[in-house]
Nucleic acid binder design. Structure first.
Lengths: 144, 144
DNA sequence: ATGGGTGCAAAATGTTTGCAAGTCC
DNA sequence: GGACTTGCAAACATTTTGCACCCAT
């Protein structure tokens, strides 16, 4: 297993403090921060940082496959370090995203008919619903 | 099978010309237009229409479950009439979205462990890749 | 030294909001 | 008649772009 530093270096990315920091924050995080959330955390450690740099850095990391963007139905992208295949649960209440291990969802078979005409490079599964916290809130309110 | 008019009426939505028009455009369309695309088509038939009304109408139709928003990784939402369960294919080349019948993907079983704590209300599968057209273009270019 | 990376601010989306006037029921 | 709907424009939030300076290689 290469160190993160080695991985980035081999991809031809310059190892600037900002880049290392942003990568590190994503690497440490079990959540799926938005660009702005990453920015706010990073800025505490590197006050000179600009939001722009966060976006550019994410772009670079995505380009080399080290980060993936998790799109959500509120037009706010969330980011995570590329890791073992998994899918996501999106809470309708608080907008939080949680990982769902791939294996628990069973195998998806891409229809042969589709892959004959289409070049299917991957897929993602997004589960929707309410996290334990929001679920409790809704039940308290008698909401459905 | 209720007529679209009856469906909307029973949901308590007022049947304004704009609303009928937008619903009709979505109903007719086999594609998955964005709000702006709907707006441009609708405006040809109803020049006084505003983009705002398209958004508001989509919101209403989504609220009553007649329309669903298909989120894509470019922050542009696509909309479609709610119909038989299916999933989507998103072309990385042209951004187009195609339906993928549910049955061809096999059943997804939501892990028991997850639904014990979480209230899982649904899920969506998004396939990624290149449509026949974009696939051809890429091969021509020798792209990978 | 050199080209990519950074930071600032402004621009460019896509979507939402405020409010007066209009219209379906 | 009343509440919901519409349309206009401005507000908003997120992301992208332009450009001069800086720094990792």
């Amino acid at each position: 297993m290469l160190t993160p530093v080695e991985k980035l270096r081999r991809k031809g990315l310059k190892l600037t403090p900002q880049r290392m920091l942003i990568y590190d924050i994503l690497y440490q995080s079990t959540r799926h921060p938005t660009a702005d959330e990453i920015y706010r955390v990073a800025k505490r450690r590197y006050p000179g940082l600009s939001l722009n740099t966060v976006y550019k850095t994410l772009e670079s990391l995505i380009a080399v496959g080290e980060v993936v963007a998790v799109e959500t139905p509120n037009s706010r992208a969330h980011y995570e370090i590329t890791k073992a295949p998994h899918h996501h649960f999106l809470c309708r209440g608080c907008g939080s995203i949680e990982d769902v291990p791939d294996s628990t969802l069973g195998k998806i078979s891409i229809p042969r008919g589709l892959s004959k005409e289409y070049d299917v490079t991957g897929f993602g599964i997004m589960l929707y619903g309410y996290c334990p916290n929001c679920r409790a809130k809704r039940q308290t309110k008698g909401g459905g």
